[in-house]
Amino acid sequence: MIWTIPNTLTILRLLAAPGVAIMFLYFHRPWADWFALTLFIGAAITDWFDGYLARLWKQESRFGAMLDPIADKAMVVIAIMVITGYSGMNPWLILPATVILFREVFVSGLREYLGGKGPILKVTQLAKWKTTAQMVAIAVLFLGTGLEHQEGIMRQGLTVQEYSDLVSQGLADPIRSCGARGCSSYATLVGLVLIWIAAALTFVTGWEYFRKSLPYLRDGQ
C-alpha cells in the first residue's frame, strides 16, 4: 500500500467507525452524543475528499478502491447499531435499519462469491447517493438522541407529557425555544424521514446489484 493522502483519509475513516461507539464507553451523555456526532460528520466529510483528491492527483489505487466501501459500510453499520440502541428500539427506525443492514451484508456476500466477476457490481452513482443519504440521516438521528437526553435532564424526571402540561400552564419554559415538544422530537422526525429515504435507495441499489449478478448465479456459469 502507498501512503497517499487519499488512502490515509480512508484508513482514518475506517478507524473512526468503531470510535463512534467508543464515545459512549468513555463519556457521559449527552457529551458522548455530541462527540460521536462530530466524529461521524468528520469521517463522512473524508468520504468525499479521499475520492476527489485521488482523482485530482491521479493517486487512485486498488487498495483505496477496496477499502473505501468497507470504511463506508463500517461507519453506517456501527452508527446504526448505536442509534437503535439509544433510541429505545423505535420500530420506525428498526425497519429501515434492518433493510440497510441486510442489503449491505447481502451485497458484500455477492461480491465475495463472484470473486473475479466482481466488476459487474462496481459502485454506481445511485449507490453513492445512497451512502450520502445514509450518512446525512444518521447524523440527524445522532442530533436527535443527544437533544433527547439533554432535554430529559432539563425536564428533571418529568415525562414529555407532564412537561408539556406545565409549559401550557405557564409553569415551565419551552425547551430550547422549539415549543412544548422540544427540539429533539423535530430532529428525530427529520432523521426518521431521511433514514426511510436512505432505506428506499438502499433497497433499489441492492436489487439492481442482485439483478446484475443473476446470470452468474445459475449453475454452469
Rank of each mutant, 00 (worst) to 15 (best):
Q125L: 12
M23Y: 11
I2L: 12
S168E: 13
P96H: 05
G182E: 05
R218K: 15
C178K: 09
A32S: 15
V193C: 07
L201Y: 06
H28R: 15
L110G: 04
G88E: 04
P18T: 10
F106T: 07
G109Q: 15
G109M: 15
W196R: 05
L56I: 03
L217M: 15
S61F: 12
W196M: 01
I94T: 10
Q59L: 13
A36D: 09
D165V: 07
T188K: 04
G191W: 02
G144K: 00
M75D: 01
L166A: 07
A133G: 11
I120S: 08
F35A: 10
V82I: 12
A187W: 03
Y209W: 11
G170M: 13
P96M: 04
Y113A: 00
T38F: 14
Y163R: 03
F40T: 06
M89I: 08
A187C: 10
W92M: 09
P69M: 10
L12H: 11
T124V: 10
E162T: 01
V107E: 04
F27N: 11
Y113I: 00
A97F: 02
D47W: 03
W3N: 13
A36L: 12
S164K: 15
F210M: 13
Y186L: 06
L110A: 01
S87P: 00
I70Y: 08
L158T: 02
L141C: 01
L114V: 02
A137R: 00
Y216R: 14
Y216A: 04
P174V: 01
T98Q: 06
Y163I: 01
T131W: 09
R103K: 15
G157L: 03
L171N: 13
R55N: 10
Y216H: 14
S108T: 14
T145M: 09
H149F: 14
I195G: 02
G109E: 14
L53M: 13
L101D: 01
S87R: 00
G88Q: 05
S185D: 06
L121M: 12
A71D: 07
F49K: 12
L201Q: 04
A36E: 09
I195P: 00
F35I: 11
S213L: 13
S184F: 05
P30T: 09
S184V: 04
I41Y: 03
A54S: 08
E112P: 11
M75Y: 07
L15T: 13
T159F: 02
E151N: 05
F203N: 00
A21R: 10
G152M: 06
A74E: 04
L114H: 10
E112A: 07
R111M: 06
A200D: 06
A97W: 02
W48A: 00
A32M: 14
I5M: 14
W48I: 04
V107K: 08
D33A: 08
F63V: 07
G152C: 07
T98C: 07
S61R: 15
R62A: 00
I100G: 02
G206N: 09
G152W: 01
T46R: 15
M154A: 12
T38D: 11
L201N: 02
L141M: 05
R62T: 00
W207N: 08
L143Y: 00
G88N: 06
P91G: 03
S61I: 11
G152H: 02
L14A: 10
G42F: 15
I195N: 01
A200K: 10
S213K: 15
F35P: 03
I197W: 05
F63E: 03
F102A: 07
K212W: 12
I70G: 05
A180G: 02
D173K: 15
A74Q: 11
N7R: 12
R13H: 09
L39E: 05
L39T: 06
